[in-house]
């Protein structure tokens, strides 16, 4: 192979486009698939993050407002009436569920106090579980992307480097100018993987702790509310 042939074979490789789009476009189709998948995952992760962020701030603010109203000495009946139609946050849903059970027990003919306490606690437990499930929904996606994203990106990189080495072997020229574009394009896949995975991991940890906090808050409220109701039951019991 004379030098002129080497130069000619190296020419299309060395004159490669090194912009972001160029890096993507020259990649092998498997690497392209990996990149696209990671891009979609990144978009989805950020959508979840934004959604959860708004959800948590909203529910935190609503809980604060509700607790203020609850402990302000306002009649629980009135509070129930104003919230029963559309409980907007988990604490309201908890309150409404407990009150509904309470009212049902009193409005019915058979005034059964025997199992009321137990029934209310059951209802509240179920409601807490359902609310936490609602808060936790889609957080698993973040966990998955956070842990698997780098591996998927690495897979794309390894594949890209593999193919670029194959093409180096075919061109029989090992100058860095021939090697570099293929490796740069392969590393782009890992870069995208990390871009998707890093925020996913960070926000997953943050949201998990947020969910725990809200769950504790709900448990606390449920205990307090059940104490209040228990006192009422004891007062009204014959």
């Amino acid at each position: 192979m004379n030098p002129a042939d080497v130069a000619q074979s190296a020419l299309p490789l060395t004159s490669s486009d090194l912009s972001l789009f160029g890096l993507f476009w020259q990649a092998h189709w498997i690497v392209k698939g990996v990149m696209l998948g990671l891009l979609v995952a990144s978009v989805w992760v950020w959508a979840i993050v934004i959604d959860k962020f708004f959800l948590f701030t909203r529910s935190n603010r609503a809980m604060n407002r509700f607790e203020q109203a609850f402990w302000s000495g306002q009649s629980l009946e009135e509070l129930y009436r104003s919230l029963s139609s559309k409980p907007t946050h988990s604490m309201a849903a908890l309150f409404v569920a407990a009150m509904r059970e309470w009212k049902r027990s009193f409005e019915g003919q058979s005034r059964s106090f025997a199992g009321l306490q137990m029934r209310i606690e059951k209802v509240m437990d179920v409601t807490i579980a359902r609310e936490i499930e609602r808060l936790e929904r889609r957080l698993l996606v973040l966990a998955t992307v956070g842990s698997a994203g780098p591996f998927i990106g690495l897979f794309g990189t390894v594949w890209g480097i593999m193919t670029s080495f194959q093409s180096i072997a075919a061109s029989k020229n090992t100058s860095l100018a021939v090697v570099a574009p293929g490796i740069a394009e392969a590393l782009f896949a890992t870069a995208i993987g990390l871009v998707a995975a890093i925020p996913a991991t960070i926000f997953y940890n943050k949201f998990v702790s947020d969910v725990n906090k809200q769950a504790q808050r709900l448990e606390g409220f449920a205990d307090e509310f059940s104490a209040i109701l228990s006192r009422q039951i004891d007062e009204r019991a014959p």
């Binding site: 990144s42 978009v43 992760v45 950020w46 959508a47 979840i48 993050v49 959604d51 708004f54």
Partner: peptide, 11 residues
């Protein structure tokens, strides 16, 4: 939906 759009636009 709003989160998804914001995310997509951001990307």
């Amino acid at each position: 939906k709003s989160g998804l759009t914001i995310s997509a636009v951001g990307h």
